[in-house]
């Protein structure tokens, strides 16, 4: 396979960036998208050119470290799939691809395709937890949780914090990310004592980090690699109104 790539190159957060044109001549349908970029980086290094910086770690779609836009779509064309799990068989020989970092005020670019997502950590720190110091827990089976409730909580808890929802949202809202944690903990009996405080603090913090407001567009749900549903935003809003 041969592909034409236009990749966003930016030396640092304060430097201007631009699209740079590359030819990927040695792609193969069984490669992952990131392996295709690895091969490109090997070629660039041997030519003495600075390789393209991009984040990735587990490369099995669970750590949430990878992610960028391919032709304007967060994590690329395959639904429910992180870019590390996207394989080249999804593309055709001769395709032209535009690759850009997440773009949001709350996610400043570090270099090329790597961005700073620590704002997400601070939203969790604001209240995305259950306060239970080590050692203070009752026996696991004293808290009975109906199977459907546990499953629903698990659906929301599957969020990997990659930031695709923010990148896809025209408002750069973090509602899907924040809502997923609020839904996960709010659905469970263990999460009840702090439920009101949690939603108030997390929503307030999300605004503080300069994430935008949610206007129910649904782009976030469409690109979420874990297919988190918009319903979590409805849960967050309901909890927020009840708590305020």
């Amino acid at each position: 396979m041969r592909l034409t790539l236009h990749i966003w190159r930016q030396k640092g957060p304060k430097e201007p960036g631009r699209m740079v044109h590359y030819e990927a001549r040695n792609a193969n349908p069984d490669m992952s998208f990131l392996e295709m970029l690895d091969v490109l980086n090997e070629e660039l290094t041997l030519k003495g050119e600075d390789p393209v910086a991009f984040d990735s770690d587990c490369r099995e779609g669970i750590c949430g470290m990878c992610g960028f836009m391919i032709n304007g779509v967060a994590h690329g064309p395959r639904r429910g799939t992180t870019v590390c799990q996207l394989h080249m068989r999804k593309f055709k020989d001769g395709d032209v691809l535009y690759i850009e970092p997440w773009r949001a005020r709350a996610f400043p670019v570090i270099k090329d395709l790597a961005v700073n997502r620590t704002a997400f950590d601070r939203i969790i720190a604001a209240g995305g937890y259950i306060s239970v110091p080590a050692g203070s827990a009752p026996d696991g089976n004293t808290i009975l949780i109906p199977k459907p409730v546990a499953e629903q909580a698990m659906d929301a808890a599957a969020c990997i914090g990659c930031g695709a929802c923010v990148a896809a949202c025209p408002n750069a809202s973090a509602a899907l990310f924040t809502g997923a944690k609020i839904a996960h903990l709010g659905l469970l009996p263990q999460g009840q004592p702090e439920r009101d405080q949690r939603v108030l603090k997390m929503v307030a913090h999300s605004t503080l980090e300069q994430f935008g407001s949610c206007t129910n567009i649904g782009e976030c749900e469409a690109v979420c690699p874990k297919e988190i549903k918009l319903e979590v935003i409805a849960r967050m809003n309901r909890d927020f109104i009840k708590a305020s």
Partner: peptide, 22 residues
């Protein structure tokens, strides 16, 4: 045995049986 208790209390959504037990 303490680990499971701790994680349940933190809200780890372990798989459940229909009766609600782990």
């Amino acid at each position: 045995v303490n680990i499971i208790d701790q994680c349940v209390a933190q809200g780890v959504p372990f798989a459940r049986e229909y009766g609600g037990t782990l």
